[in-house]
Write a protein that binds this DNA or RNA. Structure first.
Length: 730
DNA sequence: GCAGCGTGCTTCTAGACAGCATGTC
DNA sequence: CTAGAAGCACGCTGC
């Protein structure tokens, strides 16, 4: 089918033809024929990179042309940004909503297309964003994640809620290939399009002793070094391609990149700039190591990297300057970063109890990254066999194996507790019968139709729990959220987290930073740091001094000493951060990367906020000190910098510099004036700051500093992110 | 006596969603 | 269960 013949708006057609897209790929063709333009539901289960996004995009434009509004649900923030950029500039207005990125709520709904993470959509539903009622098409990207143990239930409930609100809503679900697409399609009342077709040929093989064995031929790999994994890389690079290597630990990723960098011997100098930028921005050993690798044309990628470092690596690879990335699973499901050859070096992954094979679906996900459309003649995915019998075995377990089936996670009590609370607080259900009726519309019920299921018992038990926890009132068979329950639902915290916090607050302990933080680190919403052997002593020394400040008390016995120590270690990291310990020191002390600090801080800020709101209900005298702690942890500052941090453009580094120069309040800055501040802050920032403090800024003509109107592009929430670059670069 | 190397033992291990307030020159 | 890389202490070897 030709693009010009499609019933889609002109600007979109043009954006395709400009990019050289003139005809649809076969699976896209089939999707169009299945009736997406007539409002039919669709499950499109086709390989990575075979054009799923365009299918959804065409349908969205068509919907908007007919007066509709679209919601595009993704699993990751990075993906939300990617899709936002993808959809922008083609004639429709696009917005993004994720936890750290959004347009102000009311304006968000003015867009034709809103891209959001599943949790954000759930949160918007809980907070009753009115515009959600206007959605006529919802696209569910990576919908196989319904089967994910930790987040699948959320996605499933969100879909069910949206369909409940508007039974006419069109649903387009996109997925990599799954074992049971029929079941998912059945639940969604969707047409099913499956295909193995790919725009670039994908060859999957197993490497063993100098050769890649494909199903009907082999390929010799020159032995340039003693390492097989490296040889596979060098081979691809020698013929002008790029390589993605998946390994199972951060240490392995770093070690591989170092080895690759030393062997690559590139002549180009285009890397210098990226390497220099990383090096200049790096305030940690990790960053400096990365810079050295990048200089050699190789990079590693994992969640310990600072955001800026990740972007440098991704951009450098896209531009072709970086030839190889060794990565933990961060890149497997994340951004679209294709490479000619994908090497799945480690197919075993550590889990408590031993090494476990990665799922087939995850292998397919990684393999699917091989081959860049229009750029590579073909893509290769290579598993490395470590012993003779793996040569055959890996073919069977991965290459020829069908992907896993997707099953509902909606019968898990822990997931249901939170979702049932939200059903009741938002009025989806007003009785136990209602709750069960709603659950009947889920994929879980669809999968268990005609079979005995335990969902009713689970629901009853969960409702009992919520009533006992005073989050729900039950009167004459009617269920209603209490003030407390409503708050918990809207704060989007796990009810168990809320209970733990409220238990802590109700004891009315004397306020202590340590007490609050440790309490949060004990909740299921906070993932704690890994505990190494030497950490026991490290943590114990801290406890010896400050155990009196704990709100939870030191547990008796040795039942869960490890869990407790993990929480205390995480508490220590957060305290260090709020006491202005440098990221370099924190990384060294806790064996983490800057990205880890950011993640821990972000989660902690969210939970501290929730705690202060809960304190308002249960222990009002604690609300204010907790709110103050929230600001301190958010920015990573001691109490004395609180007045300065209120100014925009001032983060932990600049505030500290001003304070040390004797300027401790906005009034001081106003009195000092732009001229005196410029040496400390730079002229531009100085002007901005003085303007905010109420001073005159005659020196600067363009004082467009005060407050911007509605931003055209999404704004990043003010977080302490800027502090992660270490030194400021303005 | 000591640098350099090999051996064997110990240690360690991926990722990442979510809140909020909102009027105005 | 289905592991393997890196770091380290130690001891041997060769000069």
């Amino acid at each position: 089918m030709k693009v010009i013949d499609l019933p889609i708006p002109e600007p979109l057609k043009k954006s395709y033809t400009v990019r050289g897209i003139e005809a649809l790929y076969p699976p896209q063709d089939e999707a169009v024929r299945s009736g997406i333009f007539e409002g039919k539901n669709l499950l499109c289960a086709i390989p990575t990179a075979s054009g799923k996004t365009i299918v959804a995009e065409m349908a969205m434009h068509r919907q908007v042309a007919e007066g509709g509004k679209c919601l595009y649900i993704v699993p990751l923030r990075a993906l939300a940004t990617e899709k936002y950029e993808d959809f922008s500039g083609k004639g429709l207005s696009v917005g993004v909503a994720t936890g750290d990125l959004d347009r102000r709520d009311a304006y968000l709904g003015r867009n034709d297309i809103v891209v959001a993470t599943s949790e954000k959509v759930d949160s918007l539903l809980r907070n009753k964003a009115q515009w959600l009622a206007e959605i006529t098409l919802v696209v569910v990207d990576e919908c196989h994640l319904i089967g994910s143990e930790d987040r699948g239930a959320t996605l499933e409930m969100v879909i069910a809620k949206l369909r409940h609100n508007n039974p006419q809503i069109q649903v387009i679900a996109l997925s990599a290939t799954v074992g049971n697409p029929g079941a998912l399609a059945g639940w969604l009342d969707a047409e099913l399009v499956t295909s193995e077709w790919r725009p670039v040929d994908l060859r999957e093989g197993v490497y063993w002793q100098g050769q890649i064995h494909f199903d009907n031929h082999t390929r010799k790999i020159p032995a340039g070094s003693k390492d097989d994994d490296l040889n596979l890389c060098l081979d691809t690079i020698a013929e002008g391609g790029q390589c993605l290597v998946f390994v199972n630990s951060r240490r392995n990723a770093e070690a591989f990149a170092k080895r690759a960098a030393s062997k690559l011997k590139l002549s180009e100098t285009t890397l210098e700039s990226a390497a220099d930028r990383i090096d200049r921005g790096a305030s940690t050993e990790l960053g400096r190591t990365l810079a050295r690798c990048v200089k050699g044309g190789a990079a590693f990628h994992h969640a310990g990297l600072a955001a800026a470092e990740r972007h440098e690596v991704e951009d450098g690879f896209r531009k072709g300057a970086i030839k190889v990335i060794s990565s933990t699973p961060t890149l497997a499901a994340g951004l679209n970063l294709p490479a000619r050859r994908v090497i799945v070096r480690d197919y075993l992954r550590f889990s408590q109890g031993g090494m476990v094979r990665i799922p087939v679906g995850e292998y397919k996900q990684m393999a699917g990254r091989a081959g860049r459309p229009h750029l590579d003649p073909y893509g290769e995915a290579v598993l490395i066999a470590k012993r003779e019998n793996d040569r055959e075995g890996l073919f069977e377990t991965y290459i020829e194996a069908p992907p896993e089936e997707v099953h509902s996670q909606c019968n898990a009590e822990n997931a249901l507790r939170s979702h049932i609370l939200s059903l009741i607080t938002t009025g989806f259900a007003r009785s136990r019968t209602d709750v069960l009726a709603f659950m009947e519309t889920t994929f879980y019920a669809y999968e268990h139709q005609g079979r005995r299921s335990t969902i009713q018992e689970t629901v009853e038990r969960v409702v009992d729990d919520l009533v006992a926890a005073e989050m729900i009132d039950e009167l004459d068979g009617w269920l209603e959220g209490t003030k407390y329950g409503n708050l918990v639902s809207r704060l989007y915290i796990d009810p168990r987290t809320a209970e733990a916090i409220v238990d802590g607050l109700r004891q009315r302990p004397p306020y202590a930073d340590v007490g609050v933080l440790e309490l949060l680190c004990e909740t299921p919403d906070m993932l704690t740091l890994f505990l190494r052997k030497d950490d026991y002593e490290f943590v114990d020394r801290f406890l010896a001094e400050r155990r009196d400040e704990l709100w939870t008390g030191v547990p008796y016995g040795y039942d869960d000493l490890e869990g407790f120590f993990q929480s205390v270690k995480t508490t220590m990291l957060l305290l260090n951060w709020a006491e202005e310990v440098t990221d370099e020191m924190i990384c060294e002390r806790f064996n983490v990367g800057p990205g880890d600090i950011h993640n821990k801080v972000e989660t902690a800020v969210w939970l501290i906020h929730a705690t202060s709101r809960l304190a308002h209900l249960f222990s009002p005298e604690l609300e204010e000190p907790i709110a103050e702690l929230e600001i301190r942890v958010k920015h990573g500052i001691k109490r004395e910098l609180l007045p300065l941090i209120k100014l925009r453009g001032i983060g932990r580094v600049r505030a500290r510099r001003l304070f040390n120069a004797g300027l401790t309040t906005p009034e001081d800055l106003k009195a000092a004036g732009v001229r005196k501040l410029s040496p400390v802050l730079g002229e531009k920032i100085a002007a901005r700051v003085v303007a905010q403090a109420g001073g005159k800024v005659e020196e600067i003509p363009d004082a467009e500093t005060v407050d911007e109107p509605i931003p055209e592009t999404p704004v990043e929430h003010q977080t302490s992110l800027s502090a992660f670059g270490g030194t400021e670069n303005e």
